[in-house]
Computed example of a mutant assay.
Amino acid sequence: MSVVLVINSGSSSFKYQLIEVETAEALASGLVERIGEPIGASKHKTAEGSFTAEVPIPDHTAGFQVMLDAFAEHGPSLEALAPVAVGHRVVQGGARFFEPTLITPLVEINIDELSLLAPLHNPGALQGIKAARAAFPDVPHVAVFDSAFHQSMPPAAYTYAIDRDVAEKHRIRRYGFHGTSHKYVSEEAARFLGRPLAGLRQIVLHLGNGASATAIDGGRSVDTSMGLTPLQGLVMGTRSGDLDPSVLLVLAQREGWSPVELDRFLNTRSGMLGLAGASDMRDVEERHEAGDADATLAFDVYIHRLRAYIGAYLAQLGGVDVISFTAGVGENSPLVRRAATETLGFAGIHLDPARNEARERGTRVISTDDSPVTVLVVPTNEELEIARQTLEVARTQ
């Protein structure tokens, strides 16, 4: 068996999955959270059920011991199903990492240095890496970077129109994120349709609490909505997305806000939460359909921005063969899918209302049979993609 343990670590929590890569089966999954608080919590799920615990978890090393105890008590046995490698999701790889990378002390240093570009993500990932390497010292550990898939973007797509010396000094450019999801979904779409990936022009819409759009030509990212950080682009649950930079200057001058306060405002108090008072699209939709004016405006702004990016990528690609909706909102909101595409008939995009409304699972077509552009719902599986990339690296060691 080719079993890989996938770790997605943040500053106060980490998620994990034990995956049999050849069969794509998740043998177990879990969450360890509230790390550093007086009482932490863990949830461990297997085919036998879900098991929870509340115990002190002072740091990530203790958190990994909680995970190991859960495997020992509830299974599956890590002796019988020993992972051949551990894969780690790392958000920001900068321009240094453009493929999954075997973790060494030097790679850890680089991930730490790149925390300047992802202060909310890379430090937690590094803590998880160190704890995992202590818990599993005898197997390869591999970093899979969210930004790596977008390293194929041309300079015209990733370059900001600012002084180039300043940009180079501070490594300011567009990097893009959600790369493992965009890669997985674009390849799954080609497999599902039985068409060569190299011949497809695709737009993938990863719509969750965080959201991004990517133009993919022949399996390569050529443009994406997120930028230097995951703040740019689409409207998100608590993030503003695209914004006139002068807004920050106005707020700094009139409110006296520091850079830290501005960052928190745009990342945690904006987006759907800022407009409607709710970050979950399900709540916004419910209130929108009930006639709530704030929720309706929030929904309209969300859709306006989403259509704008679809239109831009139609132009960049010179047309599109496949559009895929994925992640929590993309997979589960017929209203968002319908609203996002209802003005795009001119481009050959026609949704089938019954298919769009059907509460099915799995990859499926939601466009009409005669639609020149195929529209899909493709459930993302970032953990499986990380496991696959991790195994490829491990097999070369």
Rank of each mutant, 00 (worst) to 15 (best):
V166N: 00
L27H: 03
I172Q: 04
R239D: 12
I57M: 04
V320S: 12
E33A: 07
R174I: 03
S50L: 10
D244T: 06
L117M: 15
G93H: 05
R174T: 01
A198W: 04
T326G: 05
A198K: 15
G277E: 01
A157P: 02
S12C: 07
R195D: 10
S152V: 12
E168L: 14
A24P: 02
R34Q: 10
I386H: 10
S115I: 13
R355S: 09
E48K: 15
Q151D: 14
A161C: 11
A339Y: 07
E22F: 04
A72S: 15
A276Y: 03
L193K: 10
M236G: 10
I7T: 02
F51D: 09
L197P: 11
M153E: 11
A339K: 13
A95T: 12
S13M: 02
H60A: 08
Q202K: 11
L116Q: 14
A157S: 15
A293F: 08
V393P: 02
S9R: 05
T229V: 13
L317K: 07
R195C: 11
A167V: 06
A215M: 00
E285G: 06
H182G: 04
I203P: 08
R282S: 11
A135I: 02
K43F: 04
G10R: 08
Y302V: 07
D217F: 04
V166D: 07
L317W: 12
V107H: 08
V301I: 13
V377C: 05
E168Y: 01
R254Y: 12
A198M: 07
V185Q: 08
A308V: 03
A387G: 10
I303G: 01
V260E: 15
V84I: 10
A358W: 03
L207N: 06
G256P: 03
G277Y: 07
F265I: 03
H141Q: 06
A62C: 03
E331Y: 05
T61W: 01
F97Q: 12
I109H: 14
L207I: 06
L297H: 10
A118D: 04
H88N: 07
A167F: 10
H182P: 03
R133Q: 15
P353I: 10
R359N: 14
G218K: 02
A354R: 14
L231S: 05
E331K: 03
E255P: 00
V3A: 07
D321S: 09
K183L: 11
P334L: 06
A125Y: 13
S186N: 04
E33T: 11
A134E: 15
A293H: 06
A156R: 14
I35N: 02
